[in-house]
Design a binder for these strands. Sequence first.
DNA 1: AATGAATGAGGATTCATTCAT
DNA 2: AATGAATGAATCCTCATTCAT
Lengths: 208, 208, 208, 208
Amino acid sequence: MAITRNIATPVKDPELVRLRREQIVQAATKLFSQKGYHGTTTREIARESGLGTGTLYEYVNSKEDILYLVCDMIHSQVEEKLLPVLISDAKVSEILPMVLASFFRVIDELQELVLLIYQETKSLPSEYMHYVLKREEEISNYFSSILHSGIADGSFSIAEDVVLLMAHNITVLGQMWAFRRWTLHRSYTLEAFTEIQTSLLMRELCGI
Amino acid sequence: MAITRNIATPVKDPELVRLRREQIVQAATKLFSQKGYHGTTTREIARESGLGTGTLYEYVNSKEDILYLVCDMIHSQVEEKLLPVLISDAKVSEILPMVLASFFRVIDELQELVLLIYQETKSLPSEYMHYVLKREEEISNYFSSILHSGIADGSFSIAEDVVLLMAHNITVLGQMWAFRRWTLHRSYTLEAFTEIQTSLLMRELCGI
Amino acid sequence: MAITRNIATPVKDPELVRLRREQIVQAATKLFSQKGYHGTTTREIARESGLGTGTLYEYVNSKEDILYLVCDMIHSQVEEKLLPVLISDAKVSEILPMVLASFFRVIDELQELVLLIYQETKSLPSEYMHYVLKREEEISNYFSSILHSGIADGSFSIAEDVVLLMAHNITVLGQMWAFRRWTLHRSYTLEAFTEIQTSLLMRELCGI
Amino acid sequence: MAITRNIATPVKDPELVRLRREQIVQAATKLFSQKGYHGTTTREIARESGLGTGTLYEYVNSKEDILYLVCDMIHSQVEEKLLPVLISDAKVSEILPMVLASFFRVIDELQELVLLIYQETKSLPSEYMHYVLKREEEISNYFSSILHSGIADGSFSIAEDVVLLMAHNITVLGQMWAFRRWTLHRSYTLEAFTEIQTSLLMRELCGI
DNA sequence: AATGAATGAGGATTCATTCAT
DNA sequence: AATGAATGAATCCTCATTCAT
């Protein structure tokens, strides 16, 4: 379960808080994607959320809070789409390609948001950054654990100390589909991209 | 030869322009790395450059110009450090590891700057972005051409249509050393990182 | 009914908008008269209006907007003072002297403002200028219609194609009382000025 | 002979000063006409003059000096074109229409400049304004003296105390051709304008 | 709980003028 | 006498945040 930073609010009803923050995050996500964090004003976020300028600040203490909530939400979405596949009880060597395919598909669907995270994380105050990076790391961890299982059952022939790096490689190569899209989409479909990356990875893992 | 966007200036002596812009870029690079593009004021850049507020604007037309110059300079530095190795006339299968080592070393040295590019390119107006992305692509192209040679002389056994993607993979995995440093540097030294990435790559390339 | 350019504002209560803009216009009018448009800063206008710097910009989008509002208001004042006389149902040959007297009196009262319009209209962006010139023309039109009636009922013996020019002459000779005041006020009282101009005009009109 | 304010210069050769100031005034006149006084920078004036930024300030002490020189030059041009006609020794009643025709023609030729004076005189510091207004008044004086002669020889039947005002009227109605041109030129040619204004004036003067 | 008007610190940019060469 | 690089005070405008209603 992901650790999430608490954000203070004077509003008592927690369900209402959840609802309003959802409105805010949805609006902010849209605007940040279009115009960037710095290019978006809190007024715009309020309007897009359907809230008053003041109301926004009942549910959030600063613009940075909003960015944090957005980042948090994006990670949740990635995880949410990834988890079902991870739980499957197929053989490891079969799971990995499936997970990769899901992962790349998620990235493809959430392109704008992945981009957003890459570009705006550094705008967060460092205390928030901690949380966001933690979430980011969790994704790598999924791949790590698959790799470990694969080594354990003999499917993969790589050294233990390579695992961590490979997990990062996978994560970053997936995200690359979002942040290098202008170039990559010209030459590859998502399917081609997925197939090539998967087969390259299998060559690394199986030495074939 | 890199195409570079011309930036208008009323100053006539081109040598002086070069000199002052160097001061400006150096100051801006430092400040942007520390506080981000949006977190840095033009006044700070001027002061750090040792110029008056007005003088800054004799050499640059906007804050965005400065960011562009910074990006441009960073790419130049990467290329400058990369080129000597690329020119070497060793066998392709020997060149690649050398190039990788150089590339990763450059990234390591210019960490802050690579990070900077990743985070701030999107703050450029689109006309500038064009140039910056072009430069970025040139780096991938170096790797592409090495891969092509390797295929040609039989050193590498990969399909032609995989080349482009692999070149991007290499570029991004290198840059990852900068933008995931907080995690990676905890577990790997630059040397270990280089060695693992190289060997993984050779497995992909040679099918061993 | 005068067409007036709409100026966007985020403030919702139209009555408040009216009130605040009135404050702003009053302050700006005073300052522009004293120091000219370019010599007045937006901060000064804000302070003189009793508003914060930021508040000013809730009711106005630029300094040019303020100038526009000032011009608009001046024309409204001139018209407001002129209309009662125009509506009177006296004979045309009697109305004209009355209208002239009113017109010159208005100019005398609003001297500074008339001057202001003459000097600063050209500082408006062309889209605004359109509106201001339209308003200006309306004043000439009042005189035109009086002259036409006079011709129709035989009071005035001038050709139809002279009417327009005479209307302009009247307008400009009136405004002259404001923009040549330094010289004229030395030699004539408003009453003398009015009497002479009126009698000269009647000679033109009646050929006497 | 017009009194002209002296402007200090470190340059010794008076002929050179005259030459350079001519360049400056010509450049400034063009630019002020196009973009207004405030919209024109001293740098632009220097460039258009073919001088260096610094050189400009060898011949002029401030931007206001330039405006003054421009105003002065415009008045000289008006006078220069007007004088030949004034000297003529025809009968007064014949001279006036000729003078009017010349005056209106000059205004027509120098439209932009007349406009310029109207709009920018107030930008002058008050000490300069004095001189400019004096020059302006001289033009009225020409008309005054013609009117006086006409009264003296019985051509005109108007009271002495009307003369001054009529002289101003004439001046302003002429200038109107420049500053109301957008409206007037739509309805009248210069010739028609001249003819109507002249005949209206003769009605005033001769009571016919 | 909701609102939106009010605020002022802060930021990018301009430009008349100076002065060393 | 000519130059043009250097300057910083000044300006318009923005926007995150607050607070009275």
